[in-house]
C-alpha cells in the first residue's frame, strides 16, 4: 500500500512540474482525483480487506487526496494570476492618444467681468437692476444735471433717434429710473450693468457700443470715504488684493464733487512701468457724490440724503485685467478669443 502511495506521490510531483496552464492542471486533476483517477484506483478493492486495513487505506488515500488538492489549488491560484497578468498586458493602451472631449461652452469675457462684479456687489447688499438701451433724453441727460445745450454733452456724442429718444450714452440713466421708481424714497444700493452707445468711430480703443456698470448708493450720511472703501473692494476683487485706489478731482455734471479713480498699477504695483506710463496709477473709472440737483429732481431731499455714484467701463476692466489691446476683439467674437476666457482664475478659488 505504502509503495503505491509513494509511487502516486512521486508521479504527481513529476506531473505537477510539467503543468503550464490551468487546462493542464484540469487534466492533472482528472488523472489523480477523477472518478477513474489514481486515488480512486487505490481504494478499488477495499471490500476484500479487513476493517483495520480498510481504515488504513481510507486514511492514506484521504491524506493523499487532500495533499494533492492543496498543491493543485496553490498552483491553480498562481496560474490564474499569471494568466490574468498576461491578459492585462495584452490590453495595454497608449494613453497619450488624443482624448474625446464633450463640447463645453462659456460666457463672453464681458459677461465674465460683469458676473464677477455682480457677485461682489450682491455680497455687499446691492441690487442688480437693468434699464432700457433706448432711453429718453430726460433720463440720460436732463435729470442728470445735463440740460440741453450743456457743453458737457460734447463728451458723449450720441445716437439720437428722435429729438427726445436716443441710445443711452451711459448706464447712469438707470440712476434716475431707480430713484424715481423708489416710491417711499428709502435708502438703496444698486448696480446696473448694460450696453451703452456713443457716436465714436471704432478703432483699437474706441467702440460705438460698449458696456458699463453703474453703481449708486443713496442714504443718510453716505460719504466720499464710503465710495473710496467700496471702490477699493472692487479694485481688489478685480485686480488683486494689494491694489490701492486714489481719487483725482474731475467733473461730471451729475456728481459733486467728482473724481476720476486710479488704481495702483497691477503690473508694477506702483513703481512705474509701461502699462501705467510710469505713474504707478491707472485710470479705471469716474465717480463722485450725487449732485443735489439729481437727488432733489428724483424726489430725494438733498438736505437729508447723500449718495455716491460710479460708472465702471467693463471693456476697460477686461482690457486691463487680461491685457487685451483692441476693444474690437470683444465684438468680433473669434471663437479662439472667446475660448481663452473659459476658465477660472487663481483668484476665483
Amino acid at each position: 500500500m505504502k509503495e503505491k502511495q509513494e509511487k502516486i506521490r512521486s508521479e504527481f510531483n513529476k506531473d505537477l512540474e510539467s503543468v503550464k496552464t490551468t487546462a493542464d492542471l484540469n487534466d492533472l486533476r482528472v488523472k489523480y482525483l477523477g472518478k477513474k483517477g489514481l486515488i480512486t484506483e487505490l481504494t478499488k478493492n477495499m471490500q476484500e480487506l479487513s476493517i483495520d486495513e480498510r481504515k488504513e487505506v481510507g486514511r492514506i488515500s484521504n491524506d493523499l487526496k487532500s495533499e494533492l488538492t492543496e498543491e493543485m489549488t496553490k498552483l491553480e491560484n498562481s496560474l490564474k494570476e499569471q494568466e490574468l497578468n498576461a491578459k492585462l498586458v495584452s490590453e495595454k493602451i497608449d494613453i497619450s492618444m488624443p482624448s474625446t472631449k464633450v463640447s463645453v461652452g462659456g460666457v463672453h469675457p464681458l459677461t465674465k467681468i460683469c458676473d464677477e462684479l455682480e457677485e461682489l456687489f450682491i455680497s455687499m447688499g446691492y441690487d442688480v437692476v437693468s434699464g432700457p438701451e433706448v432711453e429718453i433724453d430726460k433720463y440720460n441727460f436732463e435729470m442728470l444735471n445735463l440740460p440741453k445745450d450743456h457743453p458737457a454733452r460734447d463728451a458723449q456724442d450720441s445716437f439720437y433717434i428722435t429729438d427726445e429718444e436716443l441710445l443711452r450714452t451711459q448706464t447712469s440713466a438707470v440712476q434716475v429710473r431707480s430713484m424715481l421708481k423708489n416710491q417711499e424714497k428709502k435708502p438703496f444700493k444698486i448696480v446696473c450693468p448694460g450696453k451703452t452707445y456713443r457716436r465714436d468711430a471704432d478703432d483699437a480703443t474706441h467702440s460705438h457700443q460698449f458696456m458699463q456698470m453703474e453703481g449708486l448708493v443713496v442714504g443718510e450720511n453716505i460719504t466720499l470715504s464710503d465710495l473710496k472703501g467700496t471702490l477699493e473692494e472692487m479694485a481688489r476683487k478685480m485686480f488683486g488684493r494689494d491694489r490701492e485706489v486714489r481719487f483725482r478731482p474731475s467733473f461730471f455734471p451729475f456728481t459733486e464733487p467728482s473724481y476720476e479713480v486710479d488704481v495702483s498699477c497691477m503690473k508694477c504695483g506702483g513703481k512705474g512701468c509701461n502699462i501705467c506710463k510710469g505713474t504707478g496709477w491707472i485710470e479705471v473709472l469716474g465717480s463722485g457724490m450725487v449732485h443735489p440737483n439729481v437727488l432733489n429732481g428724483c424726489g430725494f431731499d438733498s438736505n437729508k440724503f447723500t449718495g455716491f455714484a460710479f460708472g465702471i467701463g467693463i471693456e476697460r476692466i477686461a482690457m486691463l485685467k487680461y491685457g487685451i489691446n483692441d476693444i474690437r476683439d470683444f465684438y468680433t467674437n473669434d471663437l479662439r478669443f472667446l475660448k481663452n476666457y473659459n476658465r477660472i482664475e487663481g483668484g476665483d478659488k
Binding site: 444700493k189 453716505i222 464710503d226 467700496t230
Partner: peptide
C-alpha cells in the same frame, strides 16, 4: 481720506 463702507 479713510476707506469705509456705507452704513445702510
Amino acid at each position: 481720506l479713510p476707506s469705509t463702507l456705507p452704513v445702510t
